[in-house]
Design a protein around this nucleic acid. Sequence first.
DNA 1: AATGAATGAGTTTTCATTCAT
DNA 2: TATGAATGAAAACTCATTCAT
Lengths: 219, 219, 219, 219
Amino acid sequence: MAADNPSPLPLTRSRATRDPEGTQRALLAAATAEFAEKGLAGARVDEIARRAGVNKQLVYHHFGSKENLYRAALEQVYAGIRAQEQALQLSELPPAVAMERLVGFSFDYLVEHPEFIALLNDENRGRARHLPDTAQLQDMHAPLITLLHETLERGGREGVFRTDMDPVNVYISIAGLSYFYFSNNPTLSVIFGQELSSARAVAARRRHVIAFTLAALRA
Amino acid sequence: MAADNPSPLPLTRSRATRDPEGTQRALLAAATAEFAEKGLAGARVDEIARRAGVNKQLVYHHFGSKENLYRAALEQVYAGIRAQEQALQLSELPPAVAMERLVGFSFDYLVEHPEFIALLNDENRGRARHLPDTAQLQDMHAPLITLLHETLERGGREGVFRTDMDPVNVYISIAGLSYFYFSNNPTLSVIFGQELSSARAVAARRRHVIAFTLAALRA
Amino acid sequence: MAADNPSPLPLTRSRATRDPEGTQRALLAAATAEFAEKGLAGARVDEIARRAGVNKQLVYHHFGSKENLYRAALEQVYAGIRAQEQALQLSELPPAVAMERLVGFSFDYLVEHPEFIALLNDENRGRARHLPDTAQLQDMHAPLITLLHETLERGGREGVFRTDMDPVNVYISIAGLSYFYFSNNPTLSVIFGQELSSARAVAARRRHVIAFTLAALRA
Amino acid sequence: MAADNPSPLPLTRSRATRDPEGTQRALLAAATAEFAEKGLAGARVDEIARRAGVNKQLVYHHFGSKENLYRAALEQVYAGIRAQEQALQLSELPPAVAMERLVGFSFDYLVEHPEFIALLNDENRGRARHLPDTAQLQDMHAPLITLLHETLERGGREGVFRTDMDPVNVYISIAGLSYFYFSNNPTLSVIFGQELSSARAVAARRRHVIAFTLAALRA
DNA sequence: AATGAATGAGTTTTCATTCAT
DNA sequence: TATGAATGAAAACTCATTCAT
């Protein structure tokens, strides 16, 4: 789309010597990748700085500590999925179509954002100790549950969905069917002797998840 | 006063002074707990020895390295679930009953063995680098898939199950519906503002998972 | 609402935007407090700037280095006591009265200037490496010794003071009797289980020091 | 005194590879010197280990932290002066002689143990935050005050001492007259343009302190 | 004159692992 | 087999100082 990056700022290291926002962005991106790969304990501040192309001490200047940086990365990762969910516009679609789109989105997002899973896994082992601002997180997810609730009810009224399922559990099932496939892909691949990360296997899984969910919900 | 401590028993822990098997067992149990809580990188050899009530050097004496100990813990954890799965005796039950029992077992096992999830999560982030003996793991899971395949086919012949679902994906779905609920319980609880680890919530989830799966598979 | 912050005054501290003298004064005061509390090694340039409400770089702009700032603080602290000593006007008083006033002044000055002790202590551990302009310091103290010498002689001639005491040692004794009480107040309070910094204890010490000194000097 | 150091342990570094007590002693001695020279903040753990001829990590193995090591050094330094004070046997001497001996001891101890002053000074600046076991310290000093009290009373009854002086303040005066001379020796030397640390000056000070104290106390 | 981002050299502390007993 | 001291390498974090604006 025409002249990308018109600014004189180089994309890598030595960021024009003075660019606090760029520095913070670079650190956050590097941190997300490093934490996703190695977890909070395994990640190295040195390595994060190296990846960001900045001096290590800037981590402390801008974020105060490794743990704060981790928190910031978590927050950003949640904000990412929220932003895209809100753009789904499900309420205007027929219930079954809306549900299929939601399941598909949940699946596709994880394909494109493997760091989301990795960060959440570590955070869950730590009993969600670093989760940023609880109220904000709940506010961010409430619309999703409301939407799911409405869609299930609409489907029930129209006779296409069963009416005995708790929306929160339905959401967890939808998320889990996709999430588990990706989060445990390495061990599952070994166990079953199949390369479950191949494009072919992923596509098959996507179809399965949609079919499985819609069958489970149908009246 | 007179003869202080005349007994040959030492006053401190120090497991019977000579009990290699007991020591190994204690170390393995301590390691499983420590790795489950903190991951491979976060776990401390010192702490594992302390939990086991033995000297740190014994970790090296018996297991060679922290990583080997981790491997041993992983192996033991897989052996645990394998042993119980084999005792399920599903082949003699009606297909729907067999399936319900399998789903229930998958769920219940995770309730009773939270360390299983924690260890697997870390291993998956590390791309299953430490997974013990691949062939053995596959051998251990092959019967499960065969059994699932047979059960689905039996159900198909009897007209109670649909016939278009890949057994591996069905297994992954069954496992995922339970696993995700527990692995992500802390963050899900925060996000939805509900205590999903309460006995009540767990029981509701169990019913949901069984209903969801059976509905998804029915003809 | 309307025009936000139209005034040219910045919203944050930032002393009048241009006030070099005020800045220097603030820095010196902040430095004296910080060095007194933590010593040269323990003091933090960041903290000094924060206390002074100015940017850290101004420390370097105005003083060149942390050590120079320390030197300046020391110098100022010596100048403080010198200025007050000169105002004592002892030469016109009867010897015993003059001596009592000098002892009282030495005591009171320390009560009011605890930073004097703290700064000197650190400097003495460092073997007086940073002491400003030796000659000037000596010039500043010479009159004091002369005065003490004259007072002792006058007292000797009048038969109220003994005549065998070296003025420098007498000065050190007078200073020490007060100084030690304050410099070691925390440890002495612990050791003797008494709160030696209470107003009551301080007043008692003042009386003791005067009585002790005058008794030691009397003929 | 006959065969010194008969043990095969070398006096310096590489302590026979296994000698925990020797290691701790060496670390404590090195720490005392380093803390005395540079204070708690200025001391370097690296340097302490180097001086002790041991690996730096042994500081943490044996003492846990730099601060704990400092505490241990403080404790040892207090124990040192206590041990010698107890050997003074003042109660059997005539009051004036006992007092002279106590003053002389207070003076001589500081001559031989300059680290005592340096450690105390730093601790006092920090408001005695690290002082070890308060009760024990008080117990250790109580006999001294009792002794002083008795000596002053004996002197009072015998008509050689005045009877209006608080023993604690007398002790602080005795200590202060010697302590201040040494603690502030560098700055005093500069101020008065005299080398107050010369053997000659020290001897003169010793005589002064004894004369000053006895004169102050005499009936 | 004033600001705050940026840096390099260090400092305490941690930790898996090995050694001597 | 078991112990605890000892070690080297690295990790998080600190801090005085300088740079660009």
